[in-house]
């Protein structure tokens, strides 16, 4: 590789940095959505790089459902304080108080209220015209069709059949009345890229990405951790309860506790995680209950304003 060549990670990095700078230059009031996960960690590092030696000129916003892992809250607060970022936490307190829960309300309904609804309300409340998110095209097939700069109408809806052509690296950032922009600087990154980047950049991540012994309920291929609220349900075999077992496991992606399963794993270092990801035969959202309801469940959610 000669001196004027860049490795693919540096190419992806430069592309993302250019996107973040474009957001800061072209929008009046942008915000970065911060979900506390590994992709958010990478996105924050890219923002630090994009505006170095200054600070990145936008806040981080966490749409909190109240169902995140305790380790995530602890990490979030410590991390934001350490890097000196302004953190906005928004919650749909009304629905949380009413006890909205995937098991009782239904997965789709719960998501629609606590995540999509809360996000749209928060964007309106703060008057954000652009929201930067860490979604990647590789994650899911409707996301593979997503633009880097993606328009949402006044109701936060995505119209996948009528997207603006996106040419070269010239981004059309113009909005009509009521519209907002979602921006995805990690569009071209894969799960492997994220982990490789976390390794070479030594980016801090929530510790529960690493394997440890946990008490889990075994439900099919998914391991449900015994956190607050999770109870063994009826087993497929009539009259028997699901088993609770102590298993070495880790979280491949992080979401809400009731909807996020762990995977059996002994990976305790980044190298081991990368090795595991390279060999994985299942996609990274395998442990996410929310994508599994139908073949187009993500597209439907995205159309309604979800990330």
């Amino acid at each position: 590789m000669n001196s004027f060549s860049m490795t693919y990670l540096r190419q992806l990095e430069s592309e993302s940095i250019a996107i973040l700078r474009e957001v800061a230059s072209e929008f009046k009031n942008p915000v970065m959505l911060y979900s506390v996960g590994k992709d958010s960690s990478v996105m924050v590092r890219l923002a630090q790089k994009a505006f170095w030696p200054g600070k990145f000129p936008f806040s981080l916003m966490h749409i909190d459902t109240g169902y995140k892992f305790p380790e995530m809250y602890a990490f979030r607060d410590e991390f934001c304080k350490r890097i000196g970022a302004t953190l906005i936490v928004e919650r749909d307190e009304k629905h949380i108080a009413e006890g909205c829960h995937p098991l009782t309300t239904g997965v789709d309904q719960c998501c629609a209220r606590l995540k999509t609804g809360a996000l749209l309300t928060a964007l309106r409340k703060h008057g954000f015209d652009a929201a930067i998110g860490g979604a990647r095209r590789e994650e899911e097939k409707s996301r593979a069709k997503e633009r880097v700069f993606s328009i949402r109408d006044a109701f936060g809806q995505w119209d996948p059949k009528n997207q603006r052509p996106e040419l070269w690296d010239i981004y059309n950032t113009r909005l009509s009345e009521g519209e907002t922009m979602r921006v995805f600087p990690l569009s071209n990154w894969t799960e492997k890229d994220i982990w490789e980047y976390i390794r070479i950049e030594e980016i801090p991540i929530v510790p529960i990405y690493f394997a440890q012994k946990r008490e889990v309920i075994v439900r099919g291929n998914i391991l449900i951790p015994l956190y607050a609220g999770a109870r063994p349900g009826a087993s497929e075999q009539p009259g028997r309860k699901e088993k609770v077992r102590m298993i070495d496991c880790r979280f491949r992606s992080l979401g809400c506790i009731p909807c996020t399963g762990a995977i059996a794993s002994s990976a305790t270092t980044l190298e081991e995680i990368i090795g595991e990801v390279r060999k994985a035969t299942k996609s990274e959202r395998e442990n996410r209950v929310i994508d599994l309801t139908s073949d187009s469940s993500m597209e439907q959610k995205k159309k309604e304003g979800y990330f």
Binding site: K141, S142, A144, K145, N188, S296
Partner: peptide, 20 residues
């Protein structure tokens, strides 16, 4: 490859998709 429901319904590809 057809990421959109409309594409699967109509059996056509509507938009550019990215693969890795």
């Amino acid at each position: 490859l057809d990421g959109l429901a409309a594409e699967r319904e109509q059996g056509i590809t509507i938009d550019v998709a990215y693969r890795y």
